[in-house]
Amino acid sequence: MSLPSPRRRRVRRALLTALPTALAGAALVAATLAATGPRLAPVAFANQSSPNPFAGTVPWVDPYSDAARAAAAEPDAWRKAMLEKVARGGSADWIGDWTPAPRQTVAQRVTQVTAAGAVPVLVAYNIPQRDCGLYSAGGAHSAEAYKAWIDEVAAGIGSRKAAVVLEPDALASLDCLSATDQARRYELLSYAVTAFNRYPAIATYLDAGNAGWQPASVMVDRLKKANVLGARGFALNVSNFGWTTDNVAYGRSLSSRIGWKKFVVDTSRNGLGPAEGFEHWCNPPERALGPLPLTPVKDDLVDALLWIKVPGQSDGECSRAEPSAGTFWADYAIGLAARAAS
């Protein structure tokens, strides 16, 4: 699945969805929804006793990824080895307004990944007013268009196991929206959680920013209003560089206030932790690949470490002469690999 070359954000990230099932009674759910903000129809709590969707699986490594294709074409032996190191980690598949025929595209990808013994990780990235109009601006043109798109993505997965990471940055960056638009965003995210819940083998993780963005109390409130109680859990550090330990501690703080929900952490570029200074989130120099996907973690709240961001894809122009968002940047990818632990 490739991302578009226009000015929209072309970022391939991964999307985690795995096994949420409904258990709680309708009265309890209705009371929770009333206390946490406007929603669609009440949905049951995802079953926290359901198995970790990634248990017993292998990471998905796309043989035709940007990094794999760049490695195949690279004549220099050292550069080739670094690109192969990036390619071996795999990544998630980002889907959005650039994805043609989302139901068919998603269905084909899920078939391909499942056949390899892996869990498809999809990143749904099409929320209206995406990225506050910045490098990844775009998204569905209306609430109804978004709902229809979500329904198509969910149907493309169907009854098969998958993980969906739902709308990176949509909650953490909520402050850029008016009160009316914030309410609409909560309603759309809640709709998406409910739509994926119709298929019990899908595990949905609402994006919750990262340990260095919003205070835990703020993010807990936003997650509740977006119906995290109906999801498998939440995702942290997507496309960011925060230390794994910091994000696990932050995730535990969130989880303790939302029913001990499970979470996943993006480790694609956090091998040397966060950068300092202006636009520290946008192609910062001297960063490194982090722990490989499905590296074991001694924490029962962490479903998986994943490479959700595609390592080597640009975050944007960043006020410098850099590739537009989503463009694979071989030199940056090589740097990430060269500085990473073996």
Rank of each mutant, 00 (worst) to 15 (best):
C176V: 13
V193R: 06
Y205L: 02
L206Y: 00
G209D: 04
N237T: 00
R222N: 02
V238C: 07
L188C: 09
F234V: 02
G212E: 13
A192I: 07
I202T: 10
N197D: 13
A216K: 07
N227G: 07
S190V: 04
A195T: 13
L236K: 06
A195D: 03
D221R: 15
A235N: 06
G209K: 08
A231Y: 07
G233Y: 03
L236F: 07
A226V: 08
Q182K: 12
S239M: 12
S239A: 10
L177I: 03
M219Q: 11
F241T: 12
Q182E: 14
L223F: 12
R232K: 10
A179R: 07
V238D: 08
V220M: 05
V238S: 13
R198I: 07
L188K: 07
N210T: 04
D221W: 12
Y186W: 03
A192L: 08
K225W: 09
V238M: 02
A235H: 01
N240W: 09
A235E: 02
Y191M: 01
L189G: 02
W213H: 09
G230C: 04
A201C: 09
P200W: 05
D207N: 07
N227Q: 07
Y191T: 08
Y186D: 10
A208D: 06
T194A: 15
P200Q: 09
A195R: 10
G230N: 03
R198Q: 14
Y205A: 01
G212D: 05
D221Y: 15
